[in-house]
């Protein structure tokens, strides 16, 4: 419980910080509260809520390449990671080939893990909540 509260605190702080000082272009991982990806343009749903630090702490993810993977010839390269590049660098928004399209990449990555672990959101509204995220969304847009 304590960890959750800390996570929440971090999240809230991060959110507040984003709201106040979003003019700073570079993000550190603490700043990440949603999976807003510029490549999408303006999406129909608010970007998925994702508090990077809290999520990874709770999910006990140590290795970056669990998510920030690198694929070569269809095989995941175990000791490489791609957190220094954007998801959309490989995953085109529209074109699927050779990688998954961007949205599908996100959906598959998040949901497959949640399904395997039987924990975490797997339905639309859980990741893209209309109220909370839309205010974050607006906040991000409103700088």
């Amino acid at each position: 419980m304590k960890r959750l509260r800390i996570g929440l605190l971090i999240g809230m702080t991060a959110l507040a910080w984003v709201m106040v000082s979003s003019s700073i272009p570079a993000y550190s991982q603490e700043d990440i509260t949603s999976l807003k990806d510029e490549a999408f343009g303006k999406g129909q749903r608010p970007p998925a809520v994702f508090v990077h630090e809290a999520h990874n702490e709770k999910a006990e993810i140590e290795d970056c390449n669990v998510c920030h993977h690198v694929y070569k010839n269809g095989e995941k390269v175990e000791d490489e990671s791609s957190e220094d590049s954007r998801c959309s660098d490989c995953h085109n928004v529209k074109k699927g080939y050779p990688t998954r399209p961007l949205m599908k990449a996100y959906h598959d990555l998040c949901k497959s893990c949640h399904q395997t672990k039987k924990v975490g959101p797997i339905t639309c509204g859980e990741c893209h909540p209309r109220k909370a995220a839309s205010s974050a969304h607006e906040a991000e847009e409103g700088h």
């Binding site: 339905t123 509204g125 859980e126 909540p129 209309r130």
Partner: peptide
């Protein structure tokens, strides 16, 4: 109701 997520989202879904 599910789309608008007012109350009980997963229930309605």
């Amino acid at each position: 109701l599910a789309y608008h997520q007012w109350l009980g989202y997963k229930f309605w879904l």
